[in-house]
Design a binder for these strands. Structure first.
Lengths: 127, 127
DNA sequence: ACTCATTAGCGAAAGATTTCGCTAATTCGG
DNA sequence: CCGAATTAGCGAAATCTTTCGCTAATGAGT
């Protein structure tokens, strides 16, 4: 028995992507240093997760370099966009506004950022 | 080997919560009808998932009624809020604004909703 | 009370994710 | 070039999630 497909990013996959978005292209050693700091896992685990993610094309590897250099194959932005869409669909039944309100309320936004939202709002209202 | 704690809502858990948020308090039969329509799983599966979720206190059960009546123990709003916070933390490193912008852009918002966002914005800017 | 249908639940199996032990290959310092 | 350290990787195990078979309990109709 068990499960079938569906699949999003898993917990560790997202953690690793975050590290790569943050560090930029890096060797396993550096990625592992961060992951290990976060959760105390083994070096082999990091290597394995990267292999899994390579298979899923979430990361790319430059094997001409030594040690190999790894980089994210998806951007933070596109990933975020996808996850937002998913969240909106799954929790708010497509009503993105509730999410926006939640997010705004919990945000510590600078005036500049708020202005940016306001500008987008103007644009959406066609002013 | 394997995994350790952490845990968010899982896929099916969220599906079931959605159903309960939508239907309101319901017997397994009704919950199952929906879940089965979504993914064609067995009645036993629905019962089991509810049991698991009861254990995690995601749902409540009224066993005085017959058949038992199940209801969500967490609200759509609080769940959404938590997930938004999580998403913001995990993908945007706490910068909620990027998420807000993504969400606004992908939303088909009515003028009323946009106004609501605008009002909240005013409030946040202390006007 | 008896039969049948519905409801409740356990426990094990299947699938998915995460972990690591162990080995091989590569690189580095001498 | 040789031994030690670092890097790469496979394959199996641990854990978590989802699924269901099978049995027991409950309730409805006769």
């Amino acid at each position: 028995m068990g499960r079938q497909g569906a699949s999003q990013l898993t917990e560790v996959e997202l953690q690793i992507l975050r590290i790569l978005w943050d560090l930029g292209p890096s060797p396993v050693r550096d990625i592992h240093a961060r992951l290990n700091a976060d959760k105390g896992t083994n070096y082999s685990t990091t290597v394995k997760m990267l292999a899994v993610m390579l298979e899923k094309e979430l990361v790319k590897r430059d094997e001409t370099a030594s040690p190999h250099i790894w980089r994210a194959a998806v951007t933070r932005d596109s990933t975020g966009k996808k996850m937002v869409k998913d969240l909106v669909d799954k929790v708010y039944d497509g009503a993105a506004m509730s999410l926006v309100l939640h997010a705004l309320k919990s945000a510590k936004a600078s005036p500049e950022e708020l202005d940016e939202v306001r500008r987008l709002l103007d644009e959406l209202e066609g002013k």
